[in-house]
């Protein structure tokens, strides 16, 4: 069974979680051009690598960040979103 560690609820079976897609910085909607906005909404860094992504613990409703190697499918760490991602 595959496991994932929720920062609040601890290690749980993967079936309890939903993938929320790659974490992306939202541009300022007031400032962004239409093209920048469409890029944010649709485009993804599709190539393999270690990525930051949103995960949702479905039972408790906790959203958090996982850093995962998308080629080997190995989770390196998980933590709660603090609002500043680009500095760490």
């Amino acid at each position: 069974m595959k496991l994932l560690t929720c920062p609040i609820n601890g290690t749980r079976p993967l079936q309890e979680f939903t993938w929320g897609g790659e974490f992306r910085e939202m541009p300022d909607p007031e400032q962004a051009t239409d093209e920048e906005w469409a890029d944010y909404v649709f485009n993804r860094s599709g190539a393999p690598g270690v990525k930051k992504e949103w995960w949702h613990h479905t039972a408790s409703g906790v959203w958090f960040i996982a850093e995962r190697d998308t080629e080997r499918d190995i989770v390196l760490r998980t933590y709660l979103y603090t609002g500043k991602m680009s500095d760490d």
Binding site: E22, N43, S45, G46, A47
Partner: peptide, 17 residues
């Protein structure tokens, strides 16, 4: 393998594998 190739030419796409 599309995202690996589009990355080579610097094109962004919505494709997720």
């Amino acid at each position: 393998s599309t995202p690996r190739i589009t990355q080579m030419v610097g094109i962004r796409t919505p494709i997720v594998i």
